[in-house]
Write a protein that binds this DNA or RNA. Structure first.
Lengths: 129, 129
DNA sequence: ATGAGGGATGCAACTGTATTGCAAAGTTAT
DNA sequence: ATAACTTTGCAATACAGTTGCATCCCTCAT
């Protein structure tokens, strides 16, 4: 996991472990609840570091809380690596649809594309049963 | 313009006028700057009303400030009406790409699609010259 | 071993956006 | 004119995110 060039401290190991246990993306406030002792700032900076090193990616699902989820092994967070996210408005959870790539967009002339944030919202399969 | 069933007050006329003058989407803080006397709350609620009545639509571009832009005449904010948005990371402006519809997404079985938020970021044609 | 340097952590304070409660002002219909 | 309802303004609050600074910990060179 530290092929991403991150110094593995105890804190970071723990945070990474929590992250890998998630089935949905997780935000800073929710991450805090998993730790009694750790400080918000530390978690904040840990997420920031992880994101910079492309171990996790940021998802802004419009709920007001930025969420994070693990990147795939080979992800470089380039436009080609990106996938669609799904926000369920019932359970409020945000899922990575890893196998649904973000469609290619043809921008007007003169526009340079660097990244895409695509969040689909609706009701997830769990909440519809 | 009030085919959208909104009671036309003086404030609302003014806000709408400012909105229609924009070439880029505008957020509440920036909207405030256009008014010396009006209160933030009033503007906030005006935007909210406009949004509910589908006169404007919300854009969460990930900058931390939700932006708004006018809907097209016939827009009902259904998935079919949606277009792509572009956030320039240089000028920080967010543009509606009205003529680029959001691509259709095939969700996994059991998922119900209600809406899509798609924001492309990069450098706009103005900033690249 | 030891001490210096650099990164990591924790605490506290702060920023900025969004939001709500409540009272005052305005509008509309009878 | 008056009652019912809506809109506006002020104040206060909530909450995520962020920064400054001091402390701690680890590593490396002497």
């Amino acid at each position: 996991m530290r092929a991403r060039n991150i110094k593995p401290t105890a804190m970071r190991e723990l945070v990474l472990e929590v992250l890998s246990r998630q089935t949905a993306a997780i935000g800073l406030p929710e991450l805090e609840e998993h730790f009694e002792k750790a400080d918000r700032t530390t978690l904040y900076r840990t997420l920031k570091t992880f994101e910079e090193k492309k171990l996790i990616h940021k998802i802004d699902d419009g709920t007001g809380t930025v969420k994070y989820a693990l990147c795939s092994e080979t992800c470089e967070c380039e436009p080609d690596d990106l996938h669609v996210h799904f926000l369920c408005k019932k359970c409020e959870k945000t899922y990575c649809l890893y196998n649904i790539p973000v469609p290619t967009i043809n921008l007007p002339p003169g526009f340079q594309l660097d990244g895409v944030n695509m969040v689909v919202n609706g009701i997830c399969s769990n909440c519809r049963t």
